[in-house]
Amino acid sequence: MCLALPKPTAPAFVQALRPVAPSPAASELSEPLLLAASASASGSGSSPAPVPVPLPSADATPPAEHHYQVPNAPALSQLPELPNGCEAVAATMLLNWAGLPVTKEEVADALPRGEMPAENADGAFVGGNPEDVFVGNPYKAGYGIYHKPMYATMNQLLPGRFKDITGASFDTLLGVIEAGKPAMIWATEHMDTPYLDLEWQDEEDRLVEWYQPEHALLLTGWDDDYAYMNDPMTGQQEAYALSDFKQVWELMGSQAITLN
């Protein structure tokens, strides 16, 4: 689901980021070295001997600056036609970049669909499962769809071109962009911390947990500070803090689809 919702005041979970201890300054002198230089200067009538400065260690070398951007990735908006179709639009951008001139409506129409969760005669809350179908209707009321059925749909439209890398490490995902390929990813709107919004049973009695504000985007670039994505909600490239994106992407199951 990709409509903007109020940010929760008490999210279900927050993943803490590990602090990074600062490296010691490369030019810092040890106390014995300073004492030796002082003694040398006081024991002679000549000018004080220069204080030797240790060479910087390899650990103190600042990291190289990174910046990668995939060229010519189209930015499409889901609005107004697909208010809950961010996944279809993110997939359309990836399909277009791969050379298939398909529209967002054609992709939305190709998605398998399931029912919105509702109470049945037995009092149970039952609905479709985003692991199998799009829950609801991307043109109207709907929740969304996850990587497996989306990957299957994209392979039907453009066979053999895509790779589902869900479950890969964050470094592997960044490596896809470094290699010059965009990736469809699942995260949240504005990289807000996801929270459990609703639970229901699917037709096979499997528990479905839906986290909001779920959102799909096309990852097109990154540097040491930001991730750059074509956002279906705005129809433009947006920049989000790299650390925030990492946290949210992993909380949403590390879902991603790219090209072979």
Rank of each mutant, 00 (worst) to 15 (best):
C2H: 03
P11V: 06
F13D: 05
V14S: 05
V20K: 08
V20C: 00
P22M: 07
S23N: 08
P24F: 11
S27W: 04
S27L: 10
E28H: 04
L29C: 02
L33N: 03
S38I: 11
S38E: 13
A41H: 01
S42L: 14
A49Y: 01
V53M: 15
P54R: 06
P56G: 08
A58E: 15
P62H: 12
A64N: 13
H66R: 15
Y68P: 02
Q69M: 14
V70R: 08
L76P: 04
C86K: 04
A88S: 15
A90V: 12
A90P: 00
A91H: 03
M93Q: 15
L94G: 06
L95R: 06
N96D: 07
G99M: 13
L100Y: 00
V102S: 07
V102M: 06
T103L: 05
E106H: 05
A110D: 03
P112L: 13
G114I: 06
E115P: 03
A118V: 10
E119S: 07
A124P: 00
F125V: 08
V126R: 03
N129W: 01
P130H: 10
E131H: 07
V133N: 04
F134K: 01
V135E: 01
N137E: 05
P138D: 07
Y139C: 03
K140V: 01
G142D: 04
G142K: 02
G142H: 03
G144Q: 10
Y146Q: 15
K148N: 05
P149V: 06
M150Q: 05
Y151H: 14
M154W: 04
L158Y: 14
P159E: 12
G160S: 13
R161Y: 09
R161A: 14
K163A: 15
K163C: 13
D164S: 11
T166N: 09
G167N: 05
G167I: 10
D171Y: 03
D171P: 01
G175C: 11
V176E: 12
A179N: 10
K181I: 06
A183V: 12
M184N: 05
I185K: 03
E189M: 09
E189K: 02
M191I: 09
T193G: 00
D197P: 00
D197G: 07
L207M: 13
V208I: 15
E209D: 09
E209Q: 15
W210M: 08
Y211D: 02
E214V: 08
H215V: 05
A216T: 09
A216P: 02
L218A: 12
D224R: 12
Q237F: 03
L242Q: 14
V248N: 01
E250T: 12
L251H: 01
M252K: 09
A256E: 04
A256Y: 06
N260P: 00
